[in-house]
Nucleic acid binder design. Structure first.
Length: 592
RNA sequence: GGCUCCAUAGUUCAAGGGAUAGAAUAGAAGUUUCCUAAACUUUAGAUCCAGGUUCGAGUCCUGGUGGAGUCACCA
């Protein structure tokens, strides 16, 4: 439609004012004005001298005359509002009604793929609310990009080695008494996480003792025996000490098992995992190579650096004096490995905005190393999830645990549901599945509806809402539609004829308009890496539908054609809700 | 301190340089003989401050103020 209009507007302006315009921008007409599309005439004023109202009027007249779909127009100030005919909307609806995956673009199998990295946890503590945002965001962005017509690989880098891992290992060794997930009935990640906290407590005690003995705080922090021992353990690990490696494997496995449970509950998955323990060496070779080429330089103590002062950044270390890898080294290696493993067009890193600087440097280094794809790396930077008390810190136990939160959401869904008592005939199992669907729907929507860039302040005292602009609200609308479809005991999936003779209810028009936007929204969300756009769109659609549902009869229509049309409309809205929510990783229930 | 990001109803979020800044929630008032009231309808309430660019600024630029992040041989 917009294409037809654009052509016509260009031609019209040519004729009226003898001016050629490259492109015309349309916007949806605001609610308070009559019309469907709006052309801002002010935009032409740079090229055409004259009164905007006059130009708008002339253009409007031209369009009504030459474009059959335009039935009338009005000009307010410099805004030309076009009214599109009902038959156009009806025909459009009939077309999209039959398109099964309306809005989704099938990827070209030969095209290069997009890789999305997300989650990327440390294997020394359980996942918390911050990880939930990361996972939901990464998963959803991957789904959206796939829907927009790209092949997508989901991946993560598992930070499974380093001093932080040794800390929980050491604490377990010292204080664990051989505890296992089985013996304690704890999830593996929870058990290991407890020892990470335990380490920190002991470490702090030792620091206090040392300071009491007259050491400075700085000395104490470096000399605390438990820390020294952890460092020793790391060296043993790097040297391949069988005992340490065995312990490392055992405890990592506990954590992986725990993570799997959380990932499954969250509904996220990965096509390929990268492990830092496998890739940390790769970066070192690249650094050695870059050193030869003069991209990096060595300091007296043997550490290797890159000078980015010309680019307005600092010097950055890429290899420690003792030759061991740092975070950056590993990331360089992993990126190169990924482009080797897959035929990638781009690589998206879903990582919090506290690492903005790190990724700026990483991409710059990769580009200096001569990798042309470095410009196709993108840091999907999102805001932190903070508590009213400030930042979440695992070591200090000030975190909202992922599993606990999901459980809590399910419990809330259960109690609301039981209070409403609409689930006659559902088995206990069916009900439990439903509670999870609703509870997680509330949580996921709550997080994804916010622009990724913005930080989220989560107050555990105030629970996540289940009414208003929420996941359950949208799920509820879906369930209601399914109820209508169950009760529609006639064949509504037929093709309607005589579309040119009927007129639409105002609510039907706006509903169809909203449906037609879906493909554009997907493309937009993919381009902006923003699930929030999908969430907002779905909310608007549902709002529109509820209003429609409340004001006009559907199954109760006297007119047969109208009844079928409104049932079809309901069905399509349901399908779009389901598809849109799938992009957010949220399920929809048949009843609730 | 340098750099980066953020600032919109009491609160949580919207607004591709465009019209009278939208929702939700909390507040006030209504709607169940009818397709699920987790809904619908009505009502009141906001762009941090000062300049500038523009026909037009919540949005772009400059300077303040307030907040967050970062500037590690941690990841």
């Amino acid at each position: 439609m917009q294409k037809i209009l654009e052509q016509a507007v260009k031609k019209g302006l040519q004729k009226i004012c003898n001016v050629t315009i490259d492109s015309v921008e349309f916007q949806a007409t605001k609610k308070d004005f009559e019309g469907d599309f709006t052309i801002v005439v002010f935009a032409f004023l740079r090229l055409i001298k004259g009164n905007p109202v006059e130009i708008g009027t002339k253009l409007g007249e031209y369009l009504v005359e030459n474009v059959t779909e335009v039935s009338s127009f009005n000009v307010v100030k410099g805004f030309l509002n076009l009214v599109i005919s009902d038959s156009y909307f009806l025909n459009s609806f009939n077309t999209i009604y039959k398109i099964e995956n309306f809005g989704f673009v099938t990827p070209n199998p030969k095209a290069k793929a997009v890789m999305v990295e997300y989650s990327s946890p440390n294997t020394n503590k359980p996942l918390h609310l911050g990880h939930i945002r990361n996972n939901l965001l990464g998963y959803s962005v991957a789904e959206i990009i796939a829907a927009s017509g790209k092949k997508v690989y989901k991946t993560q880098i598992i930070n499974d080695r380093g001093i932080h891992i040794c800390k929980s290992m050491l604490a377990w060794q010292r204080y664990g008494n051989g505890e296992t997930p089985e013996s304690t009935s704890l999830k593996g990640d929870k058990l290991v996480g407890n020892y990470y906290v335990k380490f920190d407590q002991e470490y702090k005690k030792e620091i206090t003792k040392l300071i009491a003995k007259g050491k400075t705080e700085e000395e104490a922090k470096k000399q605390a025996p438990i820390l020294v021992e952890a460092q020793q353990m790391l060296r043993k690990w790097e040297a391949g000490d069988t005992e340490v490696v065995a312990l490392w494997k055992k405890m990592n496995q506990w954590v992986f098992d725990g993570f799997d449970i959380t990932y499954t509950a969250l509904g996220v998955n990965f096509d390929k995992n990268y492990y830092e323990s496998n890739t940390y060496l790769l970066g070192k070779d690249v650094v050695a190579e870059g050193l030869k080429k003069g991209i990096f330089f060595k300091k007296e103590d043997g550490s290797v650096w890159i000078d980015l002062t010309e680019e307005g950044l600092d010097e950055k270390i890429v290899l420690r004096a003792d030759g061991t890898a740092v975070y950056m080294t590993q990331d360089i290696g992993t990126a190169i490995e990924r482009f080797k493993d897959f035929d990638l067009e781009s690589l998206i890193y879903t990582v919090g905005n506290e690492q903005d600087y790190h990724f700026k440097v990483l991409f710059l280094i990769l580009s200096k190393l001569g990798y042309t794809w470095a410009k196709n790396c993108y840091h999907l930077s999102y805001g932190m999830v903070d508590l009213p008390s400030g930042k979440m810190k695992s070591r200090e136990g000030t975190v909202v645990d992922a599993d606990d939160l999901m459980l809590e959401m399910t419990n809330t869904a259960r109690s609301i549901s039981q209070e409403l008592g609409k689930l006659e005939g559902y088995s206990t199992e069916e009900k439990e599945v439903l509670y999870k669907t609703i509870g997680l729907g509330a949580l996921k929507y709550y997080i994804l509806k916010v622009d990724p860039k913005k930080r989220i302040l989560f107050n555990p005292e105030e629970s996540v809402d289940f009414a208003g602009n929420t996941g359950p609200f949208i799920q509820y609308t879906y369930a209601r539609i399914q109820s209508i479809l169950r009760k529609a005991n006639f064949d509504y999936q037929i093709t309607l004829s005589k579309v040119n003779e009927v007129s639409l209810h105002e609510k039907e028009r706006s509903l169809i308009k909203q449906l037609l936007l879906f493909p554009e929204i997907i493309q937009n969300a993919a381009a902006n890496h923003s699930p929030a756009l999908i969430a907002n769109y779905t909310y608007d659609l549902v709002k529109e539908y509820n209003s429609f549902y409340q004001t006009v009869p559907i199954l109760g229509c006297e007119n047969e054609q109208e009844k079928i049309r409104r049932t079809q409309l309901s069905e399509k809205v349901g399908k779009i809700i389901k598809a849109a929510f799938k992009l957010l990783g949220i399920n929809v229930p048949e009843r609730m």
